[in-house]
Every structure is written in C-alpha cells, then in structure tokens.
Design a protein around this nucleic acid. Sequence first.
DNA 1: ACCGCACCCTGAGCGC
DNA 2: TGCGCTCAGGGTGCGG
Length: 291
Amino acid sequence: MPELPEVETTRRKIVPALMGRVIAGVATTRPSYFFLTPPGELKRRLKGRTCTDLQRLGKYLLAKLDDGSRLLLHLGMTGQLFTEGSASLRLLSATRRAVMAPEQQPAFKPDRHTHLVIRFADGGPRVFFRDTRKFGKVLWLAPGASDPRLDKLGPDALGATGDTIFTAARGRRSAIKTLLLDQSVLAGAGNIYADEALFRAGVRPQRPAGKVTRAECDRIADALVAVLWRGIETGGSSISDYVAPDGQDGAFQDERMVYARAGEPCRVCGTPIRRGVVGQRGTHWCLRCQK
DNA sequence: ACCGCACCCTGAGCGC
DNA sequence: TGCGCTCAGGGTGCGG
C-alpha cells in the first residue's frame, strides 16, 4: 500500500512519538519472514536504546539509534505504524467493525497482526507496527553495517528528472510504468502514483520504455514529482489499509484521476478509464488523454 | 542486463 | 452459509 507519500507522512507524524524516548522493551509476534532480524535478537538490540533520527529512503524508514546502530522498516502492502491512542476503523478487521456501533471507535489493542509493540521508559504512549499480510520488514543494522536493499535504491523519486528516466530507459523494451516501479531507477514510486503520473504526463503505461521520447520523460518526471508532493500535502492515499500514525486518513484518494477508476469517466475528457495489467500490476489509463 | 513469472501472506468482495 | 475465485498501494529470487 504505502508509497513515498504515505511513508513520508508516516515519518513526519511518528517522529514526535519515537525520537528521544528511551525504549523500555519490545514485544513481537512469532518469527516470520517479516522479521529479517529474529524477534529475540530484535528485543535485545532495541532495549534501552533511543531513536535519534528518522529518515526516509524511498519507501523505507531508517531510524538511527543512540548506539550507532540503525533500524530499517518497510511497510509492505498493509503495514501500519501508529501511536497508542489512535483510533481508526482501518486498524480493525471487518468482522470486528461489523459488531460495533457506527461511531464507536474503541482504543486499539494489539492483535495477532501487531508484530511490533514498542514500550518506552517514560510510560507514555506505545508505538505499534501492524501488518496483516506481513509483506513489511524489520531489520536491525549494526553500527556501520549496510544492506543491499538500501544500497541498490536509486535516487529519491521526489528528485526525479527527465534525464534520469530517459537514461535508464535506453534499450529497455519493458513498459515505461515498470521502469517507474523499479526502485533501483527511482526510489519511492508505487502503483498508484505511477499510474497518476503517467496520466498527467499523457503517456500510456504500456509504452516500451526505450521508445518514450526525451520530452515525454521530462513530462513524466515533472508529473511524478508533482503528484508525489501533492500526495504528501494531502497526507497520502487511504484506500484500504493506510492510516497515518495518528489514525487519520489521507485525502489523496479523492484526487485520483485514473487509479482504481476503471469504467468511470475521465475527469478531463469523459472517456471511460481503462484497466489492464502491466508488469503484473493492475494499471489504469485514459485511452484518449494518454498516447 | 533484462524480462516475465512464482512466490511470500491475509482478507474483502463477488458470483454461485 | 459456504465455496471458490479474483483482487490488493510491496519486494525477492529464479530461470530463460
């Protein structure tokens, strides 16, 4: 789910709840591939530490700790990083929602999908990392240690240029959309914002990357940067699972031109939005507005 | 180097 | 109610 704007929104809002607070202890679920660092080791490494900085690298969050080690987090498709006391129906399963009165929003209690619970020495609000599909990741990095996941990330998508895209596209026969999703080319774009950027640039997602002109690459880069910033301004897209750390929904879903609008009229020309599959991902475009 | 595909996991929504 | 199917904002690893 979360792409650059959702991860950036998460970073900004979780900073006050994470920074400068001594970690008293960490509770986890059972070992799974969610834990790149096994739960037992993670608990030992984090206990007594303080987060001194939190940065975003593409769709990753990287927390610096006071002993020089670092904690790498990825939200995957359904990851939710939030603070205790936040209320949102998105934090509940549909079965739990169903038995509740409409306006009822009980305080969140860790459930079987809450893989990380961070307690602090000050006794204040805990921080939760919940992820139903477990495509998210947690990895502890020793001081000075690196990780190939980070090493291979391309430049941040907020700094996308036509030159970066055009250069990476040379000789590529796969779709331009697939190129935008390649985190080693540009880090941060995902399925929603790739579709939205290509719509704004007037380029069809399935065009072979190598055949997209330099001028079109400029337009794609500009559109991508603009749409990502707009995503951040609106607090991201809350379509199924995404909630900000304070439990609030984003609002970018209201500004979508194509994503998940198959069959609905294009907001520019009225032509029904098409849906297809490009690079194994659901893809949306306007036949008339995109060439 | 590049490309398509299977796979990791859980849940919602749909037609029957 | 239940079954089987498709779909979902992510990334990795494999073989061709």
